[in-house]
Write a protein that binds this DNA or RNA. Structure first.
Lengths: 142, 142
DNA sequence: GTTTATGCAAATTCTTTGCAATACT
DNA sequence: AGTATTGCAAAGAATTTGCATAAAC
């Protein structure tokens, strides 16, 4: 008996793969953009209660498996970290929020140079957001 | 008859200085950190309705006189732009959100190097946030 | 049998709007 | 008079919690 991709994903991060967690992780793995709790409800066909989705996302964030993205819309968006298990420099790619279509793009290829802060600030995480119009909306395609 | 600092501030930005606007701007000018609508209510001794505060903040944001800061707390925070009238590079200083005391620091002295994005992204504004523990909380002073 | 996970309902919190009353020009 | 501003009340929207049931171990 073998595990599914989602189960492996969870087990490798020391999280018990319950049915709801598997479903949520499946959507997060599929997603090409950060998605909100409401997006997940919709993607799952409103078969899972939002409190349950909330608790899965809460757990994934606690375990540092997801990033939480604030993009200026009212709702938080989530995406899986690229690194395994912990936030690190490779996760600190910036995001781009399209003010027209609302999509959040992960600018994976954009590296943020090291930015020295004044003494005393202990940085745990970063959130770099660009806002404007995305390529698709610029072209009028989307 | 001369104008107050707050009135001058508003007039120079083509905003009519009503009593509420003057009071809100006074607090924003005094503030050393970005503050929320709730903070303003408290600072004003709950003499101004939150809907009124909201509309002043809305107007100031429309006129690009304030920045809106998302720091991971549930509430938006506001600060006056440093430049006059328009967002520009000098406003793009990063912020630091202290996860312990909730304070948002403006890292004015920290300059973000120019970060080239892939073709097609039209950047209108940026929001760079560091999160962690601030110097005061690190020392156990605050 | 105890712990963990889930769904339902509702509470919380923050933001935003409708509308009547007031103030300004 | 007519427009703009304000306060009060309530609506909206998203997040979070309490609790009872169901599942897992």
């Amino acid at each position: 008996m073998s595990y599914s991709v989602e189960e492996n994903f969870l087990i490798s991060r020391s999280i018990k793969p319950t049915p709801n967690r598997v479903l949520v992780v499946r959507e997060l793995l599929r997603a090409t953009h950060p998605i909100s709790l409401g997006d997940l409800e919709e993607l799952l066909g409103y078969t899972m209660d939002k409190a349950s989705i909330f608790r899965v996302l809460e757990l994934l964030s606690e375990k540092e498996v997801t990033h939480v993205i604030e993009d200026g819309s009212r709702s938080l968006k989530y995406e899986l970290c690229h690194s395994e298990g912990h936030h690190d420099a490779s996760d600190q790619h910036p995001h781009f929020y399209c003010e027209r279509c609302g999509t959040v793009y992960c600018l994976d290829d954009v590296t943020i140079p090291a930015i020295p802060l004044p003494a005393g600030y202990q940085v745990k995480s970063t959130n770099f957001m660009f806002k404007g119009i995305c390529p698709k909306c610029s072209e009028g395609i989307s």
